[in-house]
Simulated scan of single mutants.
Amino acid sequence: MTGQPTFPTLLERFFTQRLMQQRQASAHTIASYRDTFRLLLQFAQKRLRRVPSTLALEDIDAPLVVDFLDELEKVRDVTARTRNLRLTAIHSFFRYVAFEAPAHAAQIQRVLAIPAKRFARALVPFLSRQEVDALLAAPDQRTWSGRRDHVLILLAVQTGLRLSELTGLQQQDLHLGTGAHVRVIGKGRKERCTPLSKNTRAVLAAWVKEPLKLPDQPLFPNASG
């Protein structure tokens, strides 16, 4: 249709304008969405016998998306959680397209109506006091890397931060004065401050003195910085 952006154009704009510029999505989110569409385009090429550059938006209809999700589970043996993550990326794209290509509103509505798959959520296990003590005692604190690992584990146990959040911490995210806390930009770019116990604060205070760290340097660097 004259004046309507093509599917390749819409997909490119979705990544460069919507995700990167407008939403400022994290690198992890962009990589996950990229992988979703790489798999979807491979599936569409096999199903429709057309290379991705020649696909039109109307080719990516609800039946094709459902068959794609089914293949992920049956052929690639992915979990329902992973299937739902792929569907989330596709839904996000079609919500963007709804404003860019309103002539396809009915098709877009049908894709957005595809439901996520229900699955049982397992309880998150936790460590016993003895297991925590064993973890904290494991690093050799006579070495620099051992002291780093000990502090990292202690902070993880006390705050419950994700691994990506811990490794992404910088010196400037740590506040050891009154109301000691650590500032984190977590999943979904949500900022939160987690208070530190007296013991954790003391261990961190000793750690930041070796070696000298600048505000924009990682709190837990590797051997090369």
Score class of each variant (00 low, 15 high):
97 V>L: 13
12 E>S: 14
114 I>S: 01
60 I>A: 08
77 D>V: 10
57 L>I: 13
81 R>T: 08
36 T>C: 11
206 A>K: 13
225 G>L: 06
11 L>W: 02
224 S>N: 01
23 R>V: 15
187 K>R: 11
42 Q>P: 06
65 V>C: 06
185 I>H: 05
124 V>R: 12
41 L>C: 09
122 A>R: 14
135 L>G: 03
104 H>G: 08
112 L>F: 09
156 A>W: 02
217 Q>Y: 07
42 Q>S: 10
157 V>S: 10
211 P>E: 15
68 F>R: 07
36 T>I: 05
103 A>L: 13
170 Q>N: 13
153 I>T: 13
134 A>F: 00
125 P>H: 04
79 T>I: 03
43 F>K: 09
202 A>Y: 06
141 Q>L: 00
170 Q>L: 09
192 R>T: 06
37 F>Q: 07
85 L>S: 09
10 L>C: 05
127 L>A: 09
16 T>K: 10
31 A>Q: 10
86 R>G: 04
9 T>S: 05
198 K>S: 11
46 K>A: 06
182 V>S: 05
100 E>N: 07
195 P>L: 04
14 F>Y: 14
209 K>E: 14
156 A>T: 07
73 E>M: 03
199 N>T: 12
14 F>E: 01
12 E>I: 14
169 L>N: 07
70 D>G: 03
40 L>G: 04
200 T>V: 14
4 Q>W: 00
84 N>F: 04
220 F>S: 05
220 F>I: 08
55 L>I: 05
94 F>H: 05
209 K>C: 13
8 P>A: 02
13 R>N: 15
190 K>T: 12
48 L>V: 04
31 A>E: 11
12 E>Y: 15
113 A>T: 02
182 V>I: 05
49 R>F: 13
75 V>K: 12
45 Q>R: 14
51 V>D: 10
164 S>E: 06
59 D>P: 01
143 T>L: 01
95 R>A: 02
175 H>V: 04
49 R>L: 12
2 T>H: 03
194 T>Y: 10
197 S>A: 08
203 V>M: 14
53 S>E: 14
150 H>W: 02
29 T>C: 09
82 T>G: 00
73 E>L: 09
17 Q>R: 12
26 S>Q: 02
208 V>K: 02
113 A>Y: 01
34 R>P: 00
36 T>P: 11
